[in-house]
Design a protein around this nucleic acid. Sequence first.
RNA 1: GUGAAUGUAGCUCAGCUGGUGGUAGCACUUGGUUGUGGUCCAGGCGGUCGUGGGUUCGAGUCCCAUCAUUCACCCCA
Length: 419
Amino acid sequence: MNIKALNGFKDILPGEVELWQRLEALARDIFGRFNFAEIRLPILEKTDLFARAIGEATDIVEKEMYTFVDKQVTMRPEATASLLRAYIEHGLHVQKPVQRLFTIGPMFRHERPQKGRLRQFHQMDVEVLGSTSPRVDAEMMAMGAMLLNELGLTVSLEINSLGCQVCRPGFRSNLLVFLDDRHQALCEDCKRRSVTNPLRVLDCKNPRCREQVLEAPSLQDHLCTDCAEHFNEVQAGLDQLGVQYRLNKFMVRGLDYYTRTTFEFITGDLGAQAAVGAGGRYDGLVEQLGGPQIPGIGFALGMERLVLLLQQQEAKLLASGVDLFMAGLGAQATHYGFALAHALRATGMRVAMDLEGRSLKSQMKQAGKLGAAHVLILAEEEFTEGKAVLRNMATQQQQEIILQDTAVTGQILIKLIAS
RNA sequence: GUGAAUGUAGCUCAGCUGGUGGUAGCACUUGGUUGUGGUCCAGGCGGUCGUGGGUUCGAGUCCCAUCAUUCACCCCA
């Protein structure tokens, strides 16, 4: 076998899939509690959409997109751009002044894979459009925290404010002056960053840069009164809802569209991939994409990273996949069991049956491995007398049952197993 | 895109300075129990040693290339 999955692409096998299902089910439940509606979006969009939304100069757009060059289309590297496109295209802002939407699905970025980072990865993406209320920011983070908490994960929340079009330019030019003075002391990456994306120098991991940056002009001191007040109210909201967080004035988000509130859910258990979820406000983005002047805020959770944490933090789930194992011995009895299994499945019961004609011992082994709650033993001798044996695998108790036609026997079994 | 490490059974791994691929563990399977699971015991199935070259009488082992994986950088969820 020399055909393998592509580098950075993974199969999710039975065993792990159950974890994904549990994650999605809980997320849908919680998003529902907060009155979010699901939206399903295409994976392929015009390349231009992402270039405009994410930013021409970002790494994602510059070198990480899967693009069909001849068709000018790209497999989405993130969900927000697509979601806003759909929002604008269908005039959802007219239907409801505030839209709360979420979407779940695969994203694609051509990066070098490593732990918690794949080329096809999955995100749960949540957005609120049409509100500038700081309560929305707080509620959104509270919802993320609730999900992580109910998954049993310990993850910390860091927040910051990046200001708006009014206050960011002033901060940016002050920062540029500061970085110019220290240029020689910065690492190579930061020398480059100070030209391409100066804000990113603030969260460089290099200890020397960190030291330099300690005295850098603070974003907090440059916030205009509106932004400062907004950020204060966000924090007040988090306090009111009892959400733990930490102010990180060096936190900068990578995508160009963020304004004001930004936040990250961080773990120390995933190596270099600390962020399991992150997002922020993007008050100018809808307009920038050709829509009306509508504010928005959103965040994405990395599902691979959550699943890794669930596995790592021993959040195990062991559910029996089988209610009944049908064990048949002999042609006549097996013939009857084949039909009985089908009748039971039609009523909703999960029934497993070995169709290979193996020994009873082997069939019992299979039943044990599958975690079957009960086994119906249809053996030649009893079968000719119209009887069979129902075994409770947990208690090891067995009882004889009288066989009738499959429909009637099915009803009897359902009652016996339920009791 | 950069750096480093690693590729031997379905999985986890032994295999020394080159000399016949491991009674290895897990998993799968058969039997011990003429018809009863999870434990135990005995057997069985299972390998192009990532791939392609080279050195050598001889390569899993050394050299080169290539592909893949992992971790880190970059970036990001």
